[in-house]
Amino acid sequence: MAVATLVLLGIVSHYSDPYNAWINLLARVGNVCVFLYILWRAGGKAIVSSLSSRRTNIAEELDSLARRKLEAEEQLKDLQSRIANLNAEREAILEESRAQGEALKASLIAEAQAEAEKIREQAARAADTETKGAVDALRNQIADEIIEAVEASLKERLNANKHAKLIDNALKKVVLN
């Protein structure tokens, strides 16, 4: 009934002889209301559900963004504290590297000194061995020369008779004792 009245009002406003602006406005508002009513009947529930689901989605997205903002702020604070401590960490790492370098240097020096000591001991043993060998060889050579000199001296002093007597006396002493 309201729709029919509005349609009739629209027709009358266009065909009336004296133009009335209020009737024209009322007809236009009525036409808009009829159009909105038709839209509501055709897709009102879909529009309402779409808008309510959109509202829910927006609320969830805002909550998600708020959580992400808090997480980002926490990460920012963490990064700022790490940046503030970066210089101290760098110094600690450098000091640790220096200490490791010094320890490595000391161990290398200790190993080198131990190796040098071993080499010195080996050289001393080799020198002792060579010295003893040289002394033994020299003693043997001197003993051989002394024997040869004594033998030559005895041969000069003893003739064949004296020599035979000396041997006989030595044999008798050995046999009798």
Rank of each mutant, 00 (worst) to 15 (best):
V29I: 15
F35C: 13
L36C: 08
L36W: 09
W40G: 10
W40R: 07
A42T: 14
G44W: 03
A46M: 15
A46S: 15
V48Y: 01
V48H: 01
S49Q: 08
S49D: 11
S50E: 08
S52P: 03
S53D: 10
S53C: 09
R54P: 03
T56H: 05
T56D: 04
N57I: 11
N57R: 11
I58Y: 02
A59H: 04
A59M: 05
A59G: 05
E60A: 02
L62T: 00
D63I: 00
S64V: 01
L65R: 00
L65M: 04
R67P: 00
R67D: 00
R68L: 01
L70F: 03
L70Q: 08
E73V: 01
E74Y: 05
E74T: 06
Q75S: 08
Q75H: 09
L76G: 02
L76F: 02
K77A: 11
K77W: 03
L79F: 14
L79W: 13
L79Q: 13
Q80K: 14
Q80R: 13
S81D: 04
R82H: 06
I83G: 02
A84M: 05
A84K: 13
A84E: 08
A84P: 01
N85R: 12
N85T: 06
N85S: 13
L86W: 04
E89W: 08
R90K: 11
R90G: 05
R90C: 06
R90M: 10
E91S: 05
L94S: 10
E96C: 07
S97P: 05
R98P: 03
R98Q: 11
A99L: 15
Q100S: 09
Q100Y: 04
E102M: 12
A103W: 07
L104S: 15
A106T: 15
A106P: 14
S107Q: 15
S107A: 15
S107W: 13
L108Y: 09
A110I: 02
Q113W: 06
E115Y: 11
A116V: 14
A116D: 15
E117F: 07
E117M: 12
E117L: 13
I119N: 15
R120N: 06
R120Y: 02
Q122E: 15
A123L: 10
A124H: 06
A124M: 07
R125S: 12
D128V: 09
D128Q: 11
D128M: 09
T129D: 11
T129N: 12
E130M: 03
E130W: 01
K132F: 02
G133F: 05
A134W: 00
V135C: 00
D136K: 12
A137G: 04
A137P: 01
L138K: 05
L138S: 05
L138G: 02
R139L: 06
Q141P: 00
I142W: 00
A143I: 14
A143F: 10
A143L: 14
D144M: 01
E145K: 12
